[in-house]
Simulated scan of single mutants.
Amino acid sequence: MQGGVRKRGKRWYYYFDVGTIGGKRKKIERVGGDTKAEALKALRKAITKYEYGYVEPENMTVEKYFVDWLENFIKANRKINTYNRYKSIINNSITPNIGGIKLSNLKPIHIENLLLEEKKKGLSGSTLQNIYVVMNSALNRAVKLQILYNNPCQHVERPKREKFVASTLTIDEFHQILNSLNEDKYNDYIFSFILKIVLETGLRRGELAGLEWENIDLDNNILTIKNNLVYSHGKVYLDTPKTEEGERTLYFSDTIKQLFKKHKEIQDKNKEKYGQYYIKNIFNNRECDFIITWENGKYLHPSYYTKRFNRILKKLDLNEKVRFHDLRHTNASFLLSLGVDFKTIQERLGHSDINTTLNIYSHVSMEMQKEAVNKLNKTLLGGKSVAK
């Protein structure tokens, strides 16, 4: 593609020929800068943009683009809770700070200032990183669609998350919680059942809430995770697990098998007791045969798991920083302390990346290292100390 620069008045212009359009030769000419060098640089950049099919959006603001990305791409390709989370970030952080800027004029300084302003509100590093991730993802797609030449997020330092240290329960604390429940009362019984299942399997709240009887193989002690019952923006949805790795198969003990069998008997008796008034749970246009239900058959709201667990901790004066979700971490920590390898734990928890597992449980890993070194020391030195 041919082009050049020339001086007109006090400024330098670049131009290049784009061929014949509609039977006429077409030439593009723009201001390139105050010097010949600036104009030549602008010429090279303009030709590259044109050859790669870049089309500069006319009057498209950041807000308009992000809303379009959210409604037409994210909503169709991501889970509903992801859509709602992204929508909240766009409405609360992105639009108020840079929504009025033309997308073609968006620069790294705008993104950096946005993150600084949000940081002034006291937002955590994790929250700031989430904002950055949403912007980066949206702008990467703009580049793919050739409405942006490059992604300004690439020139902004990604905020760092605070190091996460998992909170866990001790075995004694867990038994203290179980002992506080009166299993003669259905509400206490079902929560005791939930706690025992989660501590062995490490299931997420939504995975357990969405578990159906067809997902359980009692002959082979296997359960399959296919559902995720989630609460997002005032509504409960039945979705698939959050990642492909979340769809997994887990082995459970004979102890848990007996719990499932007992619970099936109790649930069947409740169906007879309530008869036509036994509630049917309809999601995605089908009746779901949930394992975890109230006595009348209705599913347990995902928020209940968290609220009930918090009330128990407060009543027993236990560590209130431990969340229901931390029962997963308790499960993993117990497995690690028993010598189970990280890969097995990753697969059981449904982590898509083993680094997630390694990072969360690094504190347990250090204890394992200490034990390994002590064993090695005893082997190499016959239990004798090298110190004098």
Rank of each mutant, 00 (worst) to 15 (best):
L178E: 14
N179Y: 05
S180Y: 14
L181Y: 09
L181T: 10
L181M: 15
N182P: 03
N182L: 02
E183H: 02
D184E: 15
N187Q: 14
D188L: 04
I190L: 02
F191R: 02
F193N: 13
F193S: 13
F193M: 14
F193T: 15
F193I: 09
I194D: 07
L195K: 03
L195V: 03
K196F: 03
I197C: 14
L199H: 05
E200K: 00
T201D: 01
T201M: 07
G202V: 00
G202D: 05
G202L: 04
L203V: 10
R204I: 08
R205W: 05
G206R: 08
L208E: 10
G210Y: 01
G210L: 02
G210D: 02
E212C: 15
E212F: 01
W213D: 12
I216C: 07
L218E: 06
D219T: 01
L223N: 04
I225P: 12
I225E: 09
N228T: 00
L229F: 10
L229Q: 10
L229M: 14
V230W: 02
V230Y: 03
V230N: 08
S232H: 06
G234P: 05
K235L: 09
K235D: 10
K235S: 11
Y237H: 13
L238N: 09
L238Q: 04
D239T: 15
P241K: 00
P241F: 00
P241W: 04
P241G: 05
K242I: 07
K242C: 11
E244W: 00
E245S: 15
G246R: 05
G246P: 06
G246F: 01
G246A: 06
E247F: 05
E247Q: 14
E247L: 07
T249V: 13
T249Q: 14
Y251W: 06
Y251K: 11
S253R: 00
D254Y: 02
T255L: 09
T255F: 15
I256F: 03
I256D: 02
Q258G: 00
L259C: 04
F260Y: 15
K261P: 00
K261A: 11
K261F: 05
K261H: 06
K262H: 15
I266R: 11
Q267S: 12
Q267A: 12
D268N: 13
D268V: 08
N270P: 00
K271C: 12
E272V: 11
E272Q: 12
Y274E: 07
Y274M: 08
G275A: 07
G275F: 08
Y277Q: 12
Y277E: 14
Y277L: 14
Y278W: 12
I279K: 15
I279E: 15
I279N: 09
K280D: 14
I282S: 09
N285S: 13
R286A: 11
R286K: 15
E287D: 09
C288Q: 12
C288D: 04
D289A: 04
D289H: 08
I291C: 08
I292A: 05
E295F: 03
E295H: 03
N296C: 06
G297I: 06
G297R: 03
Y299R: 07
Y299L: 02
P302S: 09
S303H: 04
S303N: 15
T306A: 04
T306I: 03
T306G: 01
R308C: 04
F309T: 03
F309H: 07
N310H: 13
I312N: 07
I312L: 14
K314A: 13
K315E: 13
L316A: 07
D317V: 10
D317W: 00
D317T: 13
L318P: 01
N319C: 05
